[in-house]
Design a binder for these strands. Structure first.
Lengths: 335, 335
DNA sequence: CCCGTCTCTGTTAGCGTTAACAACATTGGT
DNA sequence: ACCAATGTTGTTAACGCTAACAGAGACGGG
């Protein structure tokens, strides 16, 4: 693989200084004469020198890389989060290494974390929305900076999460405010914390309004499962309002309702969760809850960097409030 | 940041061998006595030893990391590709580092590539669907294994790409076969090769059938732009068949048609491109073209690994044929 | 019984960087 | 003019690993 680029010593020779001075310039060390600094900079530019991250990582014990462990990076939520994390990290001078896993079981997560650790990442962000993921994290070496996103609220790990409960409560309340007597819910997979939180929020809002929650319908995030639930809802004339755990479920519900001739929002109102970019173009445009992925990414990285810099663990946590986006899929119930 | 894990010498001491023997065991070197190998393995397990990738990268000159440069990893295509790349790479023992960029201009791409190079990645995959990206790649050091995905077919770089032309031709032909006299097209942004290829395929199919292509409508991949184009198409009674450059555009078109009371597929047939998981739950279910992202990822990685191993460049290229997925959004034209 | 060959293992020397310390030059107060 | 404090630079030693070579046994053919 041919020519290795120039090393620090080459730059030093050209600039007429020691390699250590080059290192100081690179790391913004204060005690370097301005003139020297410029000479070094010029030499760096002339040679096209690029510092060797591996050597740096070796001597400092950590690289400027953050490892991210995620499951299904094709889903809208995780994908957005990953992108936001990458952007935020890049701004701080960190690269992001993805370690996606097929399943969020103990073994897969551990393996992914191991891979990251052997590359001496500076810290790890785990998108750990299910129970089994949490277990894996407890057996991790204590000295690795770690942040979980959408993880188990009951574990003593630094955690950043969207306020699922508040979002679901807002969605449900929005439907109640429109005049509906009750709200049905199509949930996500029951082992996801996101899903559980949304169920809780929905139930809370109903109970607070003195309403006995109707039976829960179980989906799995997919439009396909939303469609199946929708077929049942469509056949129940008493149903006038549905809150789905995400927008894709809502899409499936919308289609089922459409097939059964139940008009949205005239006969039934629907609210989703996620605000995927297409939600505004569903038929009809979908009222939904928008989590702020950028804010989640920023908060996660901030928590991580604080650990990296200070060395202190600290079971900090931060919650990001989502916002309701009102569109045409909600209306008062039919008279 | 507390305790650094055990190093190779610690393992060596425990196993009663030299660190070099440990290295040999780790790298599967043949000349190690079975008994020694087992002792070393045991010591590794007992200490929870994890090799230091940085040190290895330093001495060998490359890490087991592949850098990926992509633009908008939130879009379905790029996200799927990234996930597939990661899976494939992991199977080969490589980690994937993402370097997403806001814009695909010369500067951003170069910067992202630089970041990867300074981490001494083993190779780079650039998802480079626009013209400006190609330019940046020409000025790259020659000795870096590189593969472009969805890049400029006219450049002498290893390239893997979905056969956009064939996919678009199939979609258009499918509509013609259903009996439509012509097919309209809503394109993606005109600086994307994907977009250009799909326009070409559409045009080819029409010309081959002796049809003069109707005016092209320009979109930008988003449902919003599809909606705008759809509003125009809906008002033109002669339109009976539309092929959109992706599924999200199709979603926007579907909604516009719906609002104008034009039924799909009774009045107008629609075909998309991408087969997003939700396409089957659009109203009506969308006929679309499915690119095989896994195959693209496999091919890219294969090309990259070949370069990494052999050191030879070689302007290889590989094209992945997409498949048409027929659903309810296509029917014969109204009589 | 000796010597070449093969198998296994150890020793040594880097890879390119930062950290720690040493050394020298400059400054300012007395 | 002298000493301490400060600013600037150089020297040396790691960091943990692999590559290259060297050495010690074991084995078989002459």
């Amino acid at each position: 693989m041919a020519v290795h680029g120039p090393a620090m010593t080459d730059v030093a020779r050209l600039a007429g200084v020691s390699h250590q001075t080059v290192s100081r310039v690179l790391n913004g060390h204060p005690n370097v004469r301005e003139q020297t600094r410029l000479r070094v900079r010029a030499a760096i530019a002339e040679l096209g020198y690029r510092p060797n991250g591996a050597a740096r990582a070796l001597v400092t014990g950590r690289s400027q890389v953050i490892g991210v462990v995620a499951q299904n990076t094709t889903l809208y939520g995780p994908a957005s989060l990953l992108a936001a994390l990458e952007q935020t990290a890049a701004a701080e001078g960190f690269a992001v290494s993805v370690g996606s896993v097929r399943n969020l079981d103990h073994r897969s997560i551990s393996a992914a974390v191991e891979r990251h650790l052997s590359h001496r990442v500076a810290g790890i962000v785990v998108i750990a929305p299910v129970e089994s993921a949490g277990e894996a994290l407890e057996r991790l070496p204590q000295d690795v900076p770690l942040v979980t996103v959408d993880g188990d609220p009951s574990r003593p790990v630094p955690l950043v999460t969207v306020d699922q409960v508040a979002g679901a409560r807002a969605a449900t309340q929005h439907l109640l405010d429109a005049g509906h007597r009750t709200v049905w819910h199509v949930s996500g997979p029951s082992d996801w914390f996101d899903s559980v939180g949304r169920v809780d929020g929905w139930r809370e809002a109903l109970v607070a309004a003195g309403i006995d929650p109707p039976p829960l319908m179980h989906g799995d995030w997919s439009a396909a499962s939303g469609y199946r639930c929708g077929q049942m809802l469509a056949r129940m004339p008493e149903v006038t309002a549905v809150f789905t755990a995400n927008d894709h479920l809502a899409l499936g519900v919308l289609r089922a309702l459409h097939e059964f001739g139940r008009r949205v929002p005239d006969d039934i109102s629907v609210v989703g969760f996620d605000d995927v970019p297409e939600a505004a173009y569903f038929i009809p445009p979908l009222t939904t809850v928008r989590p702020d992925f950028d804010a989640v990414a920023r908060a996660s990285l901030q928590l991580l960097l604080r650990q990296i810099e200070s060395g202190t663990g600290g079971a900090l946590r931060q919650t990001i409030a989502p916002a309701l986006v009102a569109r045409a899929s909600v209306a008062p119930p039919p008279a």
